[in-house]
Structure formats: C-alpha cells, structure tokens
Amino acid sequence: MPNPLTHLGDMPVADFLRDYWQQKPLLIRNAFPGFSSPISGEELAGMALEEAVESRLVLEHSDEGPWQLRTGPFSEEDFLSLPRSHWTLLVQAVDQWLSEIADLKAYFRFLPDWRLDDVMISYAADKGSVGPHFDYYDVFLLQAEGKRLWHQGPKVDDSHPRVEGTPLNILRDFEPENSWLLEPGDMLYLPPQYSHWGIADGACTTISIGFRAPSAATILEDLAAELAHGLPQHLRYTDPGIAPAGNPAEIDAAAVGRLQQQLRSWLQQPQNIAQWFGAVMTEAKYPDTVALDAGEADDWREQLQEGAELVLNPASRCAFCREPASLFVDGESFPVSLPLAERFCANHRLVQEDIEAFPELGHTGGLIDQLVSQGSLIYPPEDF
C-alpha cells in the first residue's frame, strides 16, 4: 500500500489543510510525477458493459436535446454509435474492481479514511464534458491521460439557475474565474460548491477522488431515529414552575425556551454519538456488491493456517473509535480491543499471525465469522 502524500506539489500537506482544504481551489502541477494511467479508455468502456458497474454517458449535443444523460450498462453498439466528439463516459467506484485504482486512495490518507468516497473515472472524447456544475463534496481531479481544460468559477448553490430540458444540473450562467490546462500527473483540488467545467482537449481520462459529506438533513434524520429508539418513555415535555397563561392559545417564548433546553438534555443521554457516527460513516455505498461475497470465505480457518489471508472487501469500509473501543465495518459496530481495531484499519487484512495475537478473532461466531458472513472479509480478488 502506498504511503500517504506528505506534499501536494511543493506544498506540505499541513499547509494545504490549513489554507485550502474546504476553503479554496488549488492547482497542483506535477502532483504525481511521471504518472501513467492504470486504466485506458477502452478498458473503462469494457467496465461499463457490466451489470454490476454503475456507469453513465453524457452527450452535449443530441437529437433528444442538450446534455443528454444515458445510464449503463451499455453495449458495444452503444459506443460504436457515439459521435466523434462532445461526449463523456463516467464509471463509478472503479476502486472496487481494480487494485491499481484502489491503491490511489492510500495517497490521500492524510485525511480520514471514513471521509473518502469511491473513485470515479471519466473518459471523454474531444470537447467532451459534463457541463458547468458544482458538487457538495471535496474532490481531487487527477489528470490520467491526455489533456483537459478546467474552468473554475465562483461558489454557487441550489438557487443558481440551471439549463432546462436536461436531468443534469448544468449551470445556466457560468463565468470562469480561473482556467488551467491539465496534463497527466497534474491535479486540481476543488472544495464544495465551487462551480467548474472540465473540457477535453482531445480524448482524455480523468480520475476523481471524492469525499463523503452527508447533509445536515441526513445526519439529523438518522441521529434523531437513533436517539429516539433508546430514549425511555418517561422523558417528555415538562413545564414545572410555569407562570399563569397570559393568553391560553399562545405558544410563548418561555415554552419554546423550555423545549430547547429539554432537547439539549435529550441529546446528551448516554447513547454514544461516536458509535452512531462510526456506523453511519462506514456504510457501504454499494451494499449489494458486498453482499455478493457473503460467506465466500467460510473455510477461512484452514486456509489461514496454510498461509492465505483475508482482506477487506474492496466495496467495504472500516473505521474505529477509542471510547469505547469499537471497530466499524459496513455500518456495523463490533466491540474489540483497541490494538486489534487499529491494526485491522491500518492493514485492511487478517492473517494467521493476527489470530495468534488476538485469539478472540478465531472464536466461533467471533469477528472473522461475522465479517465473512456479511461479505466484508473475503479472499483477495484476482485483480487485487
């Protein structure tokens, strides 16, 4: 596994996190010196033929209207019928299928693993793009093959007008503030909500390393359900010492203040926020992919003794917390020793020596059995 980056170009990572992360864009020339793309456009198109792979095609000009969106899986005939220019193929979660792409994520471990999302790769014909738009998450755009001209505009939000007649969120009014031509190994960092537009200068391939950012609405909905499930029935709205009602129909400021105070106390009940957050942030983006491998390694005991290893499913996620010591895998929490949790999250694999160091791993119904049964632990895929 590669070591995390210590510099982004000439900039120390600590300086980047202090001055740029979630604050402003940064162009990083030669971020990966001598970079050679781990995947070609033809190979990416081959992946888009598969049912299990999420893929999309964006055509800027078509008889069906501007900025047409098609979803995969595709056929070879679909690609043969494409125009010579102005289209883009996007394939999600390529890191789940190719080890060379999964390895790229290790370079970004100067940020928490649980913030990393999947790696999307796009192949664009000449002048191909997905239009001027913005995202609600951070992204590093690594140029893999060919050249792409990136225009970066101001921060925008949902109130900005969109192009009509397309399911894509294309900004109607886009004024670039900066423009850069990226070549292989160059990388552009964009914080959330910065508008941007990448246009292929000849055929090109771009790798997008994105980051998870659940919305406030999602967090509050999930947290409220989690807390409500554990709150005892005797906790209710109360108003001891209430003053005589001036107007019996009024919900006055004192009532609202009491409710706000009670809400704060309910949020401080013994439920552990870290346990909930760890489960939420390790939920698999493609749980069906994880489930496909459930039980694949049921014979793991003998195999590990013979020198095999078990690895974290490429579609799985893991993290840990210290208080209480817990391991989170694919949205599930497992009480384990802190050294074991740290070791597994660092290596994403288990071998016989791990069982010798932590015998509880090998117990019937123990951690390995549970992770194998849910598909989170598997034998290394052939490509991995």
Score class of each variant (00 low, 15 high):
residue 94 V to W: 04
residue 352 Q to A: 12
residue 320 F to P: 09
residue 306 E to P: 00
residue 121 I to M: 11
residue 175 E to S: 14
residue 158 D to T: 14
residue 138 D to K: 05
residue 121 I to L: 14
residue 355 I to Y: 00
residue 173 D to I: 08
residue 20 Y to T: 03
residue 91 V to L: 12
residue 17 L to R: 01
residue 49 L to T: 12
residue 296 E to S: 14
residue 30 N to P: 01
residue 124 A to L: 02
residue 113 D to E: 12
residue 241 G to R: 10
residue 88 T to L: 10
residue 282 T to W: 05
residue 119 V to I: 14
residue 164 E to G: 08
residue 166 T to P: 00
residue 300 W to A: 01
residue 35 F to I: 02
residue 154 P to T: 05
residue 221 E to R: 15
residue 72 G to A: 09
residue 374 Q to F: 01
residue 230 G to W: 14
residue 243 A to R: 13
residue 261 Q to N: 11
residue 292 L to C: 11
residue 213 A to V: 08
residue 277 F to C: 02
residue 371 L to S: 10
residue 337 S to V: 13
residue 384 F to S: 01
residue 61 H to R: 15
residue 113 D to S: 09
residue 383 D to G: 02
residue 119 V to D: 05
residue 14 A to S: 14
residue 241 G to T: 07
residue 145 E to M: 11
residue 308 A to S: 08
residue 322 R to G: 07
residue 147 K to W: 03
residue 94 V to M: 13
residue 40 S to E: 12
residue 359 P to R: 06
residue 125 A to Y: 07
residue 134 F to A: 09
residue 173 D to Q: 09
residue 157 D to S: 13
residue 28 I to T: 00
residue 228 A to S: 10
residue 318 C to P: 01
residue 252 D to S: 06
residue 71 T to Y: 09
residue 359 P to G: 05
residue 327 L to P: 07
residue 73 P to C: 13
residue 226 E to N: 03
residue 91 V to M: 13
residue 192 P to L: 02
residue 250 E to W: 09
residue 353 E to T: 15
residue 6 T to H: 10
residue 183 E to C: 03
residue 322 R to S: 14
residue 367 L to H: 09
residue 111 L to I: 07
residue 58 V to S: 05
residue 192 P to H: 11
residue 41 G to A: 12
residue 339 P to A: 01
residue 328 F to Y: 07
residue 200 A to W: 04
residue 378 I to Y: 07
residue 78 D to F: 03
